Simulated scan of single mutants.
Amino acid sequence: MAEFIDPGKLRTELGLQRCVAQSDGLGGQIENWAEVATVFGMIEPISAQSLVGADQTRQAITHRITMRWRGDVSAGTRLTGQGRTFAIVTSHDPDETGRYLVCRTLEHAR
């Protein structure tokens, strides 16, 4: 049975970004993020936890982001929007119909 996802809830505009390594001219590499697409999705918070280290406290927040299916979304890519960055940890097709993609993401808040 196909999972029902209301497409009207996919209204948050997000930028899909991929990491592009560039030479730094000294034999190393610099990682830059390049936007490869604009997508619309639904963001749902799942959990939050406090991380303490090096005399700093940060919040690690996990979200479930649902969007229309794309074949180029995987762990290592990220979504950005509303001044926030969501690192994609996993992505899957919830009902294997090729209609939607559900991403589990991690956001580090300060």
Rank of each mutant, 00 (worst) to 15 (best):
H92S: 15
Q17M: 12
D24K: 01
L101Y: 01
A37L: 07
A21Y: 06
R70H: 13
R18K: 12
D55I: 01
G71H: 04
T12F: 12
C19E: 15
M67C: 08
R78Y: 12
R70S: 09
H92G: 06
F40Y: 15
H108A: 11
T57A: 12
G25M: 10
T77Y: 01
E107T: 13
H108C: 10
T105N: 02
E35F: 05
G27I: 07
T57E: 13
T105W: 03
M67A: 06
G76Q: 03
T66G: 03
I88E: 09
V102S: 13
W33I: 07
V102N: 11
D72A: 10
V39D: 08
R18Q: 02
H63Y: 15
R104Y: 12
I65G: 02
A2I: 10
V39Q: 07
G8W: 13
V52H: 08
A54W: 06
V36Y: 01
A21H: 02
L16W: 04
D24L: 04
Q22M: 07
Q56A: 14
N32L: 09
E31N: 15
R70W: 08
I5D: 05
W33F: 03
A21E: 09
R58G: 03
Q49C: 11
R11M: 03
G41V: 03
D6Q: 12
R84A: 10
T57C: 03
G76N: 04
R64Y: 00
S23W: 04
T66W: 01
G53T: 00
E107A: 07
I61G: 00
G53H: 05
R78T: 08
G83Q: 05
T66Y: 03
F40M: 10
K9I: 06
G8A: 14
H92P: 03
R78P: 04
D95T: 06
I65T: 01
R11V: 06
G25Y: 10
T105A: 06
T85G: 07
V89C: 03
P94Y: 00
L101W: 02
T57R: 13
G83H: 07
A21K: 08
W33S: 04
G41D: 08
T90Y: 08
T80Q: 12
A54V: 04
G76S: 04
L26G: 02
V73T: 00
P7H: 09
D72W: 00
G81Y: 00
L26K: 07
E31P: 06
H92F: 15
H92I: 00
R99I: 10
T38I: 12
G28T: 04
T97F: 08
I5M: 02
V73H: 04
H63A: 11
G76E: 07
R104F: 14
T38E: 07
V39L: 11
R68G: 14
V39T: 13
N32E: 12
T62I: 02
S91H: 08
L10Y: 02
C103Y: 03
G76P: 00
C103A: 09
P45I: 11
I43A: 05
L106M: 11
T97K: 10
V20W: 11
Q82V: 12
T38F: 00
L16K: 02
Q17A: 09
P45N: 10
V102F: 05
A60W: 14
Q59T: 14
A109P: 08
G8T: 14
S91V: 11
T97R: 11
G25R: 04
G98I: 09
G25H: 04
R58C: 02
A87N: 13
